[in-house]
């Protein structure tokens, strides 16, 4: 239903995201993994057509066969919230402080012509009940500051699923919450996905969250897809040196016996990326060719952009 071909995003001529291609089927969840500044959020905003001023997207984004790039804002408005919806990272600031929660949830239903205002208000209460907000009829009249962080994120989810979108983009939806709440919210998202059969793009820097949510994973680094494939292969048997480094850096239970192995070096400044592989400077296998030329896509158990990595047999 969703297919990206060579999606690139640039800011003032500098690439922020390079040649991203991916496909997504209904009911499927893709996990986008990467450190901050890897281009995850830019991918999400490009999909929604909500890139900040100055950012330019090129390539192709097709949703149910319709090309989204180059669409007029008025046409995109008909799709946003209806065909595709998004949940943001900061539940504290992503809700309008001067409008009641119920009104914010009902707004999309009326806007997309699905319901009359009164019916939408009732539907908002049902949605709030569905996402597990206690006493929804009263909560609907509350303002965001009267809700806890976890409750606000539930309200955000209710808002996003209100119009039953075919695609839900969740950008670090649990990163601002503490661990026990994280588990609850992830469970809720899984439930709703299975119930509605919507496709989901789940963005996180946390591999364990991706592992819990995603069927397939895509590892981004410096605006380039490093490795992609079924989540269990990408995390269980990674082939790309960057993915391997990322997994080696995860703290495990036996912290006393096993030393952490952070990836040496720093995330490159996106404004000074080498023309070739962005990981070249930090990679054990990196050489002159890596920095010069963009590695081609090679496919084994997973698909990856690397000149050197040995492919695990499919």
């Amino acid at each position: 239903m969703l297919s990206l071909r060579d999606l690139s995003v640039s800011f003032r001529g500098r690439p922020v995201l390079r040649n991203l291609s991916l496909d997504l089927a209904p009911g499927e969840t893709l996990g986008l993994v990467g450190e901050s500044g890897s281009g995850k959020s830019m991918t999400a905003l490009a999909l929604m057509g909500l890139l900040p001023p100055g950012f330019v997207a090129s390539g192709s984004i097709r949703l149910d066969g319709n090309e989204l790039l180059g669409l007029a804002d008025a046409d995109l408005c008909r799709l946003r919230g209806r065909a595709m919806a998004m949940i943001f990272q900061e539940p504290m600031t992503a809700l309008n402080p001067v409008l009641s929660v119920g009104a914010q949830i009902a707004e999309g239903l009326v806007l997309h012509g699905l319901m009359a205002p009164r019916a939408a208000r009732e539907e908002a209460i049902r949605l709030m009940e569905r996402v597990g907000l206690p006493d929804p009829a009263r909560r609907a009249r509350s303002y965001p500051h009267e809700l806890s962080g976890g409750q606000r994120q539930r309200a955000m989810i209710a808002m996003a699923i209100a119009c039953r979108p075919a695609l839900l983009i969740a950008d670090e939806p649990t990163s601002a919450l503490d661990v026990s709440l994280q588990v609850e919210i992830l469970a809720l998202l899984r439930e709703i996905r299975d119930e509605t059969g919507m496709a989901m793009i789940f963005i996180s820097h946390d591999l364990s969250v991706i592992h819990a949510m995603a069927d397939r994973a895509l590892v981004l680094y410096g605006g380039l897809a490093m490795e992609t494939g079924p989540t269990r292969h990408v995390i269980g048997r990674p082939s790309h040196p960057y993915t391997q480094g990322l997994i080696a850096a995860i703290p495990r239970g036996s912290a006393h016996t096993e030393r952490l192995r952070p990836i040496p070096g720093q995330v490159p400044d996106l404004s000074r990326l080498p023309p070739g592989c962005p990981f070249a400077g930090r990679c054990d296998l990196g050489d002159a060719r890596c920095a010069e030329t963009l590695p081609p896509l090679r496919t084994g158990l997973t698909a990856l952009h690397c000149h050197h990595a040995e492919l695990a047999p499919a």
């Binding site: 929604m48 909500l50 804002d73 008025a74 408005c77 008909r78 799709l79 946003r80 919230g81 209806r82 919806a85 998004m86 943001f88 900061e90 600031t93 992503a94 809700l95 309008n96 402080p97 001067v98 409008l99 707004e107 999309g108 806007l111 997309h112 955000m156 808002m159 996003a160």
Partner: peptide, 29 residues
């Protein structure tokens, strides 16, 4: 530049609808 403006846009509101329904009241306080 607030996050909830992006939320409103993600919901499908046009720029001018967002300004009228979500930004104006906050900006006028």
């Amino acid at each position: 530049s607030e996050d909830y403006i992006r939320t409103a846009r993600a919901k499908g509101l046009s720029r001018s609808q967002t300004i009228r329904r979500h930004a104006l009241r906050n900006a006028l306080i």
